[in-house]
Design a protein around this nucleic acid. Structure first.
Lengths: 149, 149
DNA sequence: AAATCAATTGAGAATCATTCACAAATTATA
DNA sequence: TATAATTTGTGAATGATTCTCAATTGATTT
């Protein structure tokens, strides 16, 4: 954990940003809840537990900054909120998501899976791919089992 | 065009919804601007040209309805607006998008491309895929050429 | 065609997420 | 420690979307 904070600190410093206590608290929340897909509001409430004086705008600003530095990815599952997701250590690409239409659970897929597709897109559309967003909507394992009962 | 309106009319009637003049005007705008990715506001302004009395809320309601009936897909490219995109005739799946990070242009890919990936997801994650969203972010052909100049 | 009932509409208010403005506080640096 | 630049908290402002509700429309039955 500390190691990852250090790395993020360096990334910020490289662009002459500071890792203020507020930013650190925000990053810690993201690290602790890495599996989740927190909205800015969610993050705000969790950070408030560590640093009650923090303001919502600061959380937004921090998330925006981390997003620009590609430390987190901003995603949108279609409910009117942006969610923020830490990039995996050293991952070149954004990971994928499985959103269950029944229960709303979001699973992550870290595997790339899109290498071939990207090659086709680059070749046939002459589009230089820098990043991607892939989300599957469907029924998760648990809900499939429930349906059988 | 008339043929597609008829088809949509039937889809609505099948769920006992009416194709009111306002809804028809909205659908016509979507058909005429099929290549674009219009926001609700965009649609509103265009519909207003045909039917000046229409209200913004009605456009939102219509788009929401068409979205539920899977006649249009609601997408979000990360600027705070939802965009609405007509499904291709008879397409089982949503098409993909190429968003240029330079100029913001959005190209469409109608080809499936994800068949193999979906098989893997269904097999390895036991997730029953119903739909997907795939967007590539990168540099379009035109902007690549500009960079060389 | 008139009566009826539910669906739909327009207008504006309300809500919600996000951004902005700005004075005060903090930080790194000289 | 003084200085300058960043960052912060607060509350107000914005912008997209939804809600409320009375009025209108549309289909259906007589």
């Amino acid at each position: 954990m500390e190691h990852r904070i250090e790395r993020i600190k360096k990334l910020l410093h490289a662009q002459s940003y500071k890792l203020t206590p507020q930013r650190e608290a925000t990053v810690r929340v993201l690290l602790e809840r890495e599996e989740d897909h927190l909205s800015a509001e969610d993050v705000y409430l969790l950070v408030k537990e560590k640093a009650p004086e923090i303001g919502l705008a600061t959380v937004y600003r921090t998330l925006e900054l981390l997003s620009e530095l590609k430390i987190v990815d901003k995603i949108n599952f279609g409910d009117g909120v942006s969610r923020y997701d830490l990039r995996k250590e050293g991952a070149a690409h954004f990971h994928h998501h499985l959103v269950c239409m029944e229960c709303g659970t979001v699973e992550e897929i870290v595997e790339d899976l899109l290498e071939d597709v990207e090659k086709i897109v680059e070749r046939d559309w002459q589009f230089k791919v820098k990043d991607h967003r892939l989300t599957f909507h469907g029924i998760c394992r648990k809900c499939q089992q429930k349906e059988l009962e």
